[in-house]
Amino acid sequence: MALPREARRPFSTSVAPLRRRTLADREDWLGRLMLAPALVYVVALVGVPFALALALAFSSARSGSLEFSWVGLRNFWTILPDPQFHRALWNTLRFTLVSQALVIVLAVTAAHVLSAAFVGRRLVRFLLLLPWAAPVALAAIGWTWIFDSTFSVINWTMLWLGLTKRWLYWFGEPQLATAAIIIVHVWRMFPFATVITLAGMSAIPQEISEAAVIDGAGFWRRFFQVNLPLLLPIITVAVLFGVVFTSTDLSVVYLLTRGGPYNSTHVLSSLAFQRGIFGGDLGQGAAVALFLLPVLVVVAILMLRTARRAEVGA
């Protein structure tokens, strides 16, 4: 039986030609390819230096040499009984914890103030963000002058206002130097935490607050029993970032006190820098720096879990 004319027309004339499947069609490989630059970046700039630091910590590497002899745990046995190391470890913890506690209080307060409508709010928000935008090295130099033991403007002001009767040697006394370092950390991290908290506040549905008001809740009750619980996940993210930035920071201590007076304000990163770079003992410097690792691993896990929880909650 003869087919109708349309049916005898070759199939290929009405259908696009077939071609071999390319990489663009293979989602599994394409995904890996697209991810590769980021992975290479992380491996090259984080993984390799980390592996190198691990290797250095178990070696007798020196800054002026390329020799790399394995010394096992010797660097760790050297620093473990070292009082300077104990002090640096303790300082790292207390600078981080105290500054972050202050950051939370200040950030939540500032976020509440800035969420209210008032004239000049934009300007205040802009000014508040400046410390975050300022290069930390530049800011630390400014603070060095503010706290200078001979010319401190804070001292002059406090004396003039009658708030103190004695000259305060901010970097000459360990307690004051500690306070100065914490103040600078708080100043630096507080804008970031404020912005994050502000973002969290704007995400709270207005009706929840209104319902609380209708139910007769006052400001403090609304704050502690409504707003704060809702803000907790986002504040946790801010705190965890703050913990990472503060505990790993070298520049504030290095530029303000250089670890002084008498090596009493070192943190692990500044002590590692002093021992490894200035002292020329890369192995010992790496061993000191590695003590941050367990703390940061825990913080990183917490960060990831919190972020995931916040994501799921959203």
Partner: peptide, 21 residues
């Protein structure tokens, strides 16, 4: 002396002398 010398940096002594401090 005073505790200021515990926080001396490379510029401190120059500045203190020139400021007659």
């Amino acid at each position: 002396m005073s505790p200021a010398v515990l926080s001396w940096n490379a510029a401190s002594n120059n500045l203190a002398l020139n400021a007659r401090q």
